[in-house]
Amino acid sequence: MNVTARTILLVEDNEDDVFFMEQAKGRAGIQNPMQVAHNGQEAIDYLQGAGKYTDRSQFPLPFLILLDLKLPLVMGLDVLKWIRERPEFETVLVVVLTSSREDRDIDTAYRIGANSYLVKPPTAQKLTELVKCLGDYWIRQNEPPVHIGEAVH
């Protein structure tokens, strides 16, 4: 499948940050569709195809998850743990995108299986630069995982 057609899932509770991400994605020239989960539980539901996310043609499995850490209901690190505990999601790319530069958060995120850890920049311009880099690396340069949502037997 064409990489640019694959879905990105943004897990973000702050509407402003969702707005900025959408804007930045447009400016960075990233074509991939982006779905948004507004809290940790929604992210889990989305990946499971539960509740309103049962229709996979409307809500396809993402190849890249942009994950905030401070989230309502289920915290970001718990979502990450949940993802990594499931064999079918072992291959999905998870990039943490958060405000925190705390050593504790960074170390824990990597330990439980984050692929990258990015800190949200303070201005729209810097965010655009960051998202451009993100696209360049994870979508254009990097070979993303081929199979997602299938456990290896």
Partner: peptide
Amino acid sequence: FSYSISHDMRAPLRAMQGYSDY
């Protein structure tokens, strides 16, 4: 406290700056 500063106080700040940029 510092965790909260790190996470929560920067979000509104980003919004202020982001929107003024836009």
